[in-house]
């Protein structure tokens, strides 16, 4: 097995908030009928449930987020992703569904600090004041597509395509520079 590395090798920058590429994270895209009982059972076996519209639910290290009316994104340990993908594929074998490991096609970032929101307020057309914990919001960060959610107290996580990870860390680093606080 090749030695997997994340897009930016965990690059971090400290400004008025700390921005970091969060390293390797397992990700599995599920395209399926979200009302399917087989899907509910398969996620139930992982301690998860099918998330409601725009929600992200977690159990330990594993989370599953609502990406669209027929799409979910499962986040898990990097090494576990191919196994979970195979299990889910088997569980949805009889259905019109697609399960793919996309760990190496995505990059994940965290923005930490009391002013973490302000870093993203400059980049995304999202009202962060009304973004609750447990909601996953797909949007854009400047010119690229991203999905973001509150992953902890004073912490936001962002997922984007790996090919634009360099652009994303550049955005975040500039946006988080000291002196750039909004309020």
């Amino acid at each position: 097995m090749s030695d997997a590395v994340s897009a930016l090798n965990g690059q971090t920058h400290d400004g008025f908030a700390r921005v970091a590429e969060a390293g390797l994270r397992g990700m599995v895209t599920i395209r399926a009928d979200l009302d399917s009982t087989a899907l509910a059972a398969a996620l139930g076996a992982l301690g998860l449930s099918v998330p409601a519209k725009r929600q992200i639910v977690s159990a330990g290290d594993t989370s599953v987020g609502w990406m669209g009316p027929d799409e979910l994104l499962l986040l898990c340990d990097y090494a576990q992703a191919p196994h979970l993908c195979a299990d889910l594929s088997a569980a949805l074998a009889g259905e019109h569904a697609l399960v793919v490991t996309v760990s190496d096609a995505r990059a994940i970032f965290t923005v930490q600090g009391a002013r973490a929101d302000q870093v993203l307020q400059k980049l995304c057309p999202v009202d962060f004041a009304t973004l609750p914990v447990g909601e996953l919001r797909r949007t854009r960060a400047a010119q690229i597509a991203a999905a973001l959610w509150r992953s902890g107290p004073d912490e936001l996580s962002l997922v984007c395509f790996r090919s634009v990870a360099g652009y994303m860390i550049g955005l975040l680093e500039v946006s988080a520079r000291k002196g750039g606080e909004i309020f």
Partner: peptide, 11 residues
């Protein structure tokens, strides 16, 4: 109508 979010033109 699918996400239920009010999004602006640029999205």
């Amino acid at each position: 109508p699918y996400c239920g979010v009010t999004v602006e033109e640029t999205e």
